[in-house]
Simulated scan of single mutants.
Amino acid sequence: AAWKDACNSSSDPSLFLVPEGKTYLLMPLSFGGPCRSTTITAMVSQATEIRGTLEAPSNRSVWLDGDRRERWITFEDVDGLHVMGGGTLNGHGQEWWINSCKVNKSMKCVAGPTAMYFRSCNHLVVDDLEVKDSMQMHVVIASCWKAAVSRLFVTAPGWSPNTDGIHVSNSREVSITNCIISTGDDCISIVSGSEFVRASGIYCGPGHGISIGSLGANKSLAHVSDVLVEKATLVGTTNGVRIKTWQGGEGSAERITFQDIKMYNVTNPIIIDQNYCDSKKPCSEEDSAVAISDIRYNNIHGTSLSKVAVKFICSSAVHCDGIVMQDVSLVGQKGAYLKCSSVNARVITPGFNSPYCTADM
C-alpha cells in the first residue's frame, strides 16, 4: 500500500521509506511501475548505527510452495528510481546454501531467489546499502539503461554457492563504483547483452573474482562489449579477472579492459576460458565458440597462489585475438617466478610483463 501511494503520488520526488530502527519481515514482493512521479526514492534509512532493516523469510517452503518465487524484492518498469539510505537487506540464505546441490551432492539442484532484482529501470540509482546473505544472487541489474550502483556492502560466507554480488544482464551504460563485496561466487558478473559497463573502486574477497560471463551456454548467442574494470583490489579470491564462455556458443566478447588492479593471494589472477563447463557431465568439444577479441590488461600487480598466474585457454575453433598485456607483474609466494599458459590466443606484450606470455596460434 505504501508503494502504491508513493508510485501514484503527484509530488516529485516521491519517497517510499523503511524507517531507521525498524525491522520488517518482507515476503517476496514486486514493486512495479510506471509511476506518476518522475523520480521515486526508496529509502532504507540509517540513523547513527540503528539501521532500517528488511528481512527475508528464512524457511525455504515460503519460496517453493505453490508458485515458486525466483526473487525476493523486485523493482520493475520504474524509471528515475533511487534506492538508498544506509539500511540493511538480509536474505537469510543459510537454509538455501546447505541444501544446494553444490554443497550437498545428494540434493536436487534448485535455483535460489535473488535478493534485489531491478528490471527495466532506466536512470536507476542504487547507493549506500548493506545486502547480506542472499539465497542466491544479491543484486541483479537486468534490461536497464543508465544505472549507477555505488557504496554497496555485499556479504555472504565464502562457501555459500551461487551468491554473486552484483550481476549485470542485458543492460547498457552501467556504473558500479566504490563497493565492498565478499561472497561465495563472482563479486561482479557481467553477462550477455551488456554494453558500456564500468566497475571502479571495487574490493573483492572472498569470492570468485570479477567475471565476464559465463557466455554462450546451451549453444546460445551472447554479446558483451565496452567493459572497463579499474582500480580494483582482490584478496584471496579463486579468480582475479576472468572471461568465461561455453563451447558451442556464438557471438562475441570484445573491447574489454582490466586496469589498475591489485591482487593478493589470488589463485588464478588472469584467466580467459573458452572451454568453461559448470556441469556434472563433461562438455564435449564443439566447432563454434563466443569470439573473444580486443582484451587489455594494464597495470596489474600482486601475488598468485598458483604457479600458472595467467591462463588464456582459447577454442581451437575460434581463437582469442588481440589480447594486450602491458605492465603486468605477478609473483608467487616468497617472490617465486610464475608462468603463463596460452593456447589458441594471439597475445601482444609491449613493455615489461611478468609472467611473459607469447602468442600460441
Rank of each mutant, 00 (worst) to 15 (best):
G251I: 01
I190S: 09
R51V: 12
A42N: 06
G52Y: 07
I348A: 12
A1H: 14
E20A: 15
R69I: 00
E285L: 10
P34L: 01
I202T: 05
R69W: 03
I243M: 11
S14Y: 11
D65N: 09
Y264F: 07
G52C: 03
D79V: 07
N268A: 05
T183H: 13
G87C: 02
A6S: 15
D321E: 10
G205F: 00
N122I: 01
H301I: 01
V44T: 09
P282G: 01
S341K: 10
G66T: 03
C121D: 10
E70I: 08
V290F: 10
Q247I: 00
V154L: 15
F118D: 05
I202E: 13
G240R: 02
L221I: 01
G351C: 08
I295G: 01
T237I: 01
V126N: 14
V139T: 03
I295C: 08
P206Y: 13
V174S: 11
A359P: 11
T245A: 09
A199M: 02
Q94L: 09
T23W: 08
G335L: 03
V227A: 02
G66H: 11
C101L: 01
G201D: 03
V44R: 06
F75Y: 11
V62S: 02
G248W: 01
A1G: 15
N90W: 10
A142P: 06
A148H: 15
V149G: 03
G236V: 00
G216T: 02
N299Q: 10
A56G: 10
Q247R: 06
I176G: 08
A336K: 11
E49L: 08
F75T: 00
S30T: 07
K244R: 15
P206A: 12
E130M: 14
